[in-house]
Design a protein around this nucleic acid. Structure first.
Length: 543
RNA sequence: GGCGAGUUCGUCUAGGGGUUAGGACGCUGGCCUCUCACGCCGGAAACACGGGUUCGAUUCCCGUACUCGCUACCA
């Protein structure tokens, strides 16, 4: 008998078996969390208070990767319960941004679905019903204290908190008679509904990323759940009701929500939904690249990189904030970069397509600590994606920049240029200045390069070279190179000296691809013109 | 102040009771080469601190420090 009790204790006590076979437990623990009878349904639930921050984008991405990996659904829900902070255009911005990044939703404000409406401002009646239920069950109460009164209270009493210890001294339905309450309401006084939190209870939150977090209910205040002024719930109520009604199985959100997770657990229990509450995963925050603190819009402005996916124009001030798209980032690169800020597949693979990310994604491999935003690495990712892209694809984007510059180039030439040059840029627009010499002859010659590469015998070299080239019809074949090399050998010229001086005449500086690639693209006429012109401008240094 | 979370190269991170602590970005030396890039081969660079537990701790525990988050009729 004693043995059986001991055994059942052993089984029930996590710590005992964890210490008994820790490695084994760790392996189990991971898959353990995903075990759920219900369909996987996650949501991304931003507030339309402005452009979607890059940290929010990452939250959306992780939700998306998790949903796809688990064969579940992802829902886009708009949490616009604060009418004061509503910003026109923000919702559209969010939808467009996520679409640009390839994050698509199965249900939501933009695509519909069976659990709508997906905009909280359109769900007033639903919330009202649940607020009333809480009131009826004595799990919540009505409070008349005005924001001004509360603020005075907070000034007077250090660490004032509206909770079990103070609610008896405030103006609410617990201290007022039913008749008085009704009278105040009838007279049109504004009120709020507060959640009646029982003190002294240890609330346990199981977090997929952080393990168990315990908070005592006494440190929680009686949160406002509903405001009579706009007949809307606050985040906490709306969030719990919607997650329940929309059958959300996993809540994946930023770490800033961790402190209120116990409150949410209590709310699920108050509604009697304790057994079907979702699993939580609180993601680490994205931090400033330098110094401390959360990444903000100002950091982007200060350090010169975007913190928003798309360009955003503030409807009030007209201020423009730059976006990744407008800064010439490829969405695949942004996704890849963001995915690795706080998560990694456990291998050394860093370049991953969306499909690979989905395949590899695992919430239990998310980090607990915040990640400083390493903008340089973002540039590198973009570079890698340019390299991965087909030349034709890059050429298309390059072409649109050229058209802006008034350069209309033959398609084949563009593709060839891209093939030659794309390995040296982080952004496609950088090809424009880098490759300008293919279209525009140099009007001046870089002083440093001239000094270094244009020597006493350069004039002679170029003259001889001109002779050879004049005798050739076409610069695209290997024959050209053979002839030039033969001439150099015959005259016992120094190959490097000839080539570098030649490059100066055609490019105007000391950079660029192989000379024979350049002349193949330039063509005979242009090549000879540039050389002849250079000979009239560059100094003849012969003694 | 209270509560919570976090802490491995400058940055993103792997790892985990015994390792030369691995990779990537950035920086840097070299090779390749007609230049510049790319590529390849190298280099510098890290377990916050103090106690425990242990034969042994960067890894486990406790404390301290620091950082972040929350502490609204914002989300």
């Amino acid at each position: 008998m004693a043995a059986i009790e001991e055994f059942s204790y052993f089984c029930a006590n996590k710590n005992s078996w964890e210490s008994f076979f820790p490695p084994f437990y760790m392996k189990i623990k991971k898959s353990f969390y995903y075990m759920t009878n219900q369909e996987v349904r996650v949501r991304f639930a931003p507030s339309p208070t402005g452009p979607l921050h890059i940290g929010g984008v990452r939250t959306a991405l992780y939700n998306y990767l998790f949903a796809r990996k688990q064969g579940g659904k992802i829902i886009l829900r708009i949490e616009d319960t604060d009418s004061n902070r509503f910003v026109p255009g923000a919702e559209e911005y969010i939808v467009k941004s996520l679409h640009w990044l390839g994050i698509e939703f199965d249900e939501g404000v933009n695509v519909g679905g069976d659990y709508g409406p997906y905009r909280q401002s359109e769900r007033r009646d639903i919330y009202k019903k649940y607020v009333d239920q809480l009131l009826k069950d004595d799990k919540a109460y009505i409070a008349f204290d005005t924001p001004q009164e509360l603020s005075v209270k907070r000034d007077e009493i250090k660490n004032f908190q509206y909770d079990a210890s103070t609610r008896g001294t405030m103006r609410n339905s617990l201290t007022l008679s039913a008749a008085e309450v009704q009278k105040l309401i009838d007279e049109g006084n504004q009120y709020v509904v507060r959640f009646k939190i029982e003190p002294g209870i240890d609330v346990h939150v199981q977090d997929i990323i952080r393990g168990e977090v315990v908070i005592n209910s006494s440190v929680l205040d009686d949160k406002v759940l509903f405001k009579s002024a706009d007949q809307l719930p606050t985040y906490h109520l709306a969030n719990i009701v919607d997650d329940h009604l929309m059958k959300i199985s996993h809540v994946i959100r930023g770490e800033e929500w961790l402190p209120s997770a116990p409150l949410h657990v209590l709310l699920y229990e108050a509604f009697g939904w304790g057994d079907s509450k979702p699993q939580f995963a609180h993601l680490p925050l994205l931090l400033k690249p330098e110094g401390n603190g959360k990444l903000s819009k100002r950091d982007g402005d200060r350090l010169g990189f975007p913190v928003f996916p798309l360009e955003w124009k503030d409807p009030k001030t007209g201020d423009i904030s730059s976006g990744y798209r407008e800064s010439d980032y490829l969405p695949e690169a942004v996704v890849n970069f963001l995915a690795l800020l706080g998560w990694n597949p456990g291998t050394e693979q860093e370049i991953m397509s969306m499909d690979e990310l989905i395949e590899l994604f695992d919430l239990t491999r998310c980090n607990k600590s915040g990640a400083k935003f390493d903008y340089e690495k973002g540039r590198w990712f973009n570079h890698e994606y340019i390299l991965k892209m087909a030349d034709e694809e890059v050429a298309k984007m390059y072409q649109s920049y050229l058209i802006e510059e008034g350069i209309d180039a033959p398609w084949d030439k563009l593709v060839t240029i891209v093939g030659l040059m794309k390995n040296r840029v982080n952004f496609i627009h950088e090809l424009v200045p880098l490759c300008r010499f293919f279209f525009v002859a140099p009007t001046e010659y870089d002083a440093k390069t001239t000094k270094k590469r244009w020597k006493e015998n350069s004039y002679l070299h170029m003259s001889k070279l001109l002779e050879v080239l004049e005798g050739l019809d076409d610069f695209t074949g290997e024959f050209t190179e053979e002839q030039v090399r033969a001439m150099i050998e015959k005259n016992e010229f120094h190959l490097g000296q000839v080539m570098n001086a030649w490059r100066l005449t055609l490019v105007g500086e000391g950079k660029g691809p192989q000379m024979f690639d350049i002349i193949a693209l330039l063509g005979k006429e242009e090549t000879l013109n540039r050389m002849r012109r250079a000979l009239t401008i560059l100094p003849d240094k012969r003694q």
